[in-house]
Computed example of a mutant assay.
Amino acid sequence: MYIKDIKEEEYFRSADGCILCELLHRKNEDFDLRIGYSIAHAVVPACEKTVPHRLKESSEVYYILSGKGMMHIDGESKEVFPGQAVYIPPGAVQYIENTTGSDLIFLAVADPEWKGKDEEIIT
Rank of each mutant, 00 (worst) to 15 (best):
Y2Q: 10
I3C: 07
K4G: 06
K4R: 14
I6S: 13
K7P: 03
K7E: 10
E8W: 09
E10V: 09
F12M: 11
R13Y: 10
R13S: 07
S14H: 14
S14K: 00
A15G: 02
G17M: 08
L20T: 05
L20A: 00
E22F: 09
L23Y: 00
L24R: 00
L24M: 05
R26E: 07
K27N: 09
E29P: 02
D30E: 11
D30C: 02
F31D: 03
F31K: 08
R34N: 15
I35P: 00
Y37A: 06
Y37T: 05
S38C: 08
A40G: 12
H41L: 12
H41N: 09
V43Q: 05
V44I: 15
A46M: 07
A46C: 08
A46K: 15
C47I: 06
C47T: 11
E48G: 01
V51H: 09
V51C: 06
P52M: 07
P52K: 07
P52F: 04
K56T: 14
K56V: 14
E57P: 07
E57C: 09
E57G: 05
S58Y: 00
E60Y: 00
V61G: 01
Y62H: 02
Y62I: 01
L65Q: 02
L65N: 00
L65Y: 04
G67Y: 00
G67Q: 00
G67F: 02
K68V: 00
M70N: 07
M71K: 04
D74Y: 05
D74E: 14
G75R: 08
S77T: 12
E79K: 11
E79R: 10
V80Y: 06
P82H: 11
P82V: 03
G83R: 10
A85L: 07
V86C: 01
Y87M: 13
P89D: 12
P89V: 12
V93I: 13
Q94P: 08
Q94L: 08
Q94E: 13
Y95V: 07
Y95R: 11
I96G: 06
I96A: 01
E97N: 13
N98Y: 06
T99D: 03
T100W: 04
S102A: 14
D103E: 15
L104V: 07
L104Y: 09
F106C: 03
L107S: 04
A108F: 01
A108N: 13
A110S: 15
P112S: 13
E113R: 13
E113P: 13
K115A: 10
K115Y: 07
D118W: 05
E119P: 00
E119K: 15
E119S: 13
E120L: 13
I122P: 05
I122D: 06
